[in-house]
Design a protein around this nucleic acid. Structure first.
Lengths: 361, 361
DNA sequence: CTTTGTTATATTAACGTTAAACTACACGGC
DNA sequence: GCCGTGTAGTTTAACGTTAATATAACAAAG
């Protein structure tokens, strides 16, 4: 073998018809009679023909490809979202191109250019920094279908995202309801410009009439369990007075904090109530099963793909941007202490995820 | 805005040169004088020009795109491999297309066809079933650069893979060395045709002179912690005599088994020595830190990309297939009991991953 | 001065496909 | 016998780029 793949022209040569007739027959045009079609189909099969999508794309001006830009595939919750996105796209005949930025805006811009050059029909972007979206805005202005997977408070871009602010708030509300007043926050996002969870945390404190103490906000400089372990260990060593509650901005960080506590003989939840974020698969199987903020990553992905394809198929110019948020819920397990009876009431357990849309006209 | 992206022709019209001159200038040809080049570059920048890679691909017959087919992105170890693959490809100017099969061979074939139609320069395939590779062989025969990320014992395909057989063997050897003789195997792969780990397990038993007992092999029907929990709970409930050791074919299954033990008051490692597979990030932070088979997913990915691109750049026909294996190592933590002094000796801890190549000429 | 070469640019064809326009022939109707 | 209408195709042009070839202007060599 080793020769080049078959083209329409090859089928044409094999059957004696013209390339265009072959094309029409393969696409099932009514202008081609049964018998001709069958002869052409047989030849195509024999030659193992598959249409060259590159050539098709050049003519049709669509690649049926969507670009996904995210910070890291290794983040379990982004992996889960990626799976759902790939699934939704495949079901609609689209392929997925993937690019990871590792939180580097330069790489984010580079990825956008690569995707633009490759003529993807649209992009899904989990932005590295939620406060720096100015490099993305021109894309939309130029008519490029783009959906952001994080919030754009300015409302200039299409958004399908978890309501992280609300997530931070319900986590904090929960600990406040359990009687905690010194609640620390292990926040991987803050240093990277992803401030929503912390805003929710502050709002939760406010709800409970608790003054915000900046010394209780810890930056682990990373998203890994190792970073959480290191940062919380250092915090415990240097803090004047220990908090009774801790919220981690993701579950892996919570795992690290849990280990830091074990090392120092701090019992969770007795001495420290812990709440994580994301509800990754392992969190149910942590040393102390994690109470954590859960959200429907699949539902989110589906909504994002649907919105993106609506933009792709928009007939003329793009409709005005919309923001759509998935409402997170709290999954109460052991690490917060609600089950061991320290608190007064139990928060609702995992339920169907509610969703709400905010329309900015 | 909202008008179509700029083409060479638009720059040509703006500067008064021909499209071909513009093309040459943008690609830095020596045939274009400084001043002309600069005027063209300025116009290109003003028009926000990016070359249309679809058109380039049609001419050059290469897309600089690689297709990755895997079973699930959600599997942490595959996510890690995907990250490294994307990174390696990006560094070389290639883009990544991703497709997940969820262990369905039909989807695997479909993905191969989609990628072929999209003219990817090569494919990396983490096959759903290691015993069914017959749909992949014709690809290679037809001259398509393809690298398998699992073993092909027949040696007809290029392979870059972990030596899972060896992984199963060192896990088993370890437990045998610690004195265990009833060692169970929680094997998610077996039912799916991924038999290497179990073969290694059997070889390990053989090394220790322990007869193989098929009733100790458990099929969890899934890769998740939940599947591991369910399957091992059922096994414990029905088994006549309890094993003293357990090897799980991945870490999430081990997490589930750990929980099943806790529920029944079985202490790990005292009553049951446990070894996992993959060394995912969370395994260090499990209720009992997991002893587990570790391998260099990054190294593997790099080798796979290098081999694939070597095939892509092969001048004439493809060179004969090669198989390359990454040697796994055992990371000894707490769950096997080696650290608590039950065993006689300690296995080596995580080290640099060794690698070996097997050349089939 | 003609030839030869060099420099700067333009023109043409090709990549594999689809869309649009065209042709050739048969068949009814009148 | 001529006209319109299908039927079953073919031919041509286009998508945006690159490669190959052509050309025009001018300079240097003989």
């Amino acid at each position: 073998m080793a020769r080049r793949p078959a083209r329409l022209k090859d089928i044409a040569a094999a059957t004696g018809f013209s390339a265009n007739t072959v094309s029409l027959a393969l696409r099932g045009s009514g202008r081609i009679p049964q018998e001709t079609r069958e002869r052409i189909l047989a030849a195509a099969r024999k030659l193992n023909y598959l249409p060259n999508q590159v050539a098709q794309s050049l003519v049709s001006r669509e690649t049926r490809t969507v670009g996904l830009i995210l910070t890291s595939i290794v983040n379990p919750i982004l992996a889960q979202a990626s799976r759902a996105i790939e699934r939704e796209l495949a079901a609609r005949g689209y392929s997925l191109m993937l690019s990871a930025t590792e939180n580097d805006i330069g790489k984010e811009i580079e990825a956008m250019n690569v995707f633009r050059s490759r003529q993807v029909d649209g992009m899904l972007i989990y932005a590295a920094n939620h406060t720096e979206l100015d490099h993305i805005r021109p894309l939309r202005k130029a008519g490029y279908p783009t959906v952001l997977l994080v919030d754009d408070p300015a409302g200039q871009l299409d958004v399908v995202s978890v309501d992280d602010r609300r997530g931070g708030e319900i986590a904090t509300d929960h600990l406040v309801a359990l009687g905690h007043r010194r609640i620390a926050f292990l926040d991987a996002g803050g240093g990277l410009g992803n401030f929503e969870k912390r805003e929710g945390y502050q709002r939760g404190l406010e709800n409970g009439g608790i003054p915000f103490d900046p010394s209780l906000v810890i930056d682990p400089r990373g998203h890994s369990a190792a970073a959480g372990y290191r940062a919380f260990s250092e915090f415990l060593a240097s803090a004047r007075s220990r908090p009774t509650g801790l919220i981690a901005s993701n579950d892996l960080l919570a795992f690290g904090a849990l280990r830091a506590c074990r090392d120092r003989g701090i019992a969770v939840p007795r001495d420290l109530a812990l709440v994580g974020f994301d509800d990754i698969e392992a969190s149910e199987y942590a040393p102390v099963p994690l109470t954590t903020v859960h959200y429907g990553a699949d539902e989110l992905s589906k909504a994002a793909v649907e919105r993106l394809l609506a933009l792709v198929q928009a007939p003329d110019r793009l409709p005005p941007p919309k923001r759509f948020f998935i409402e997170p819920t709290l999954v109460v397990r052991d690490s917060c202490g609600a089950r061991s009876g320290r608190g007064r009431r139990r928060s609702r357990a995992r339920g169907a995820d509610a969703a709400s849309a905010v329309d900015l006209a």
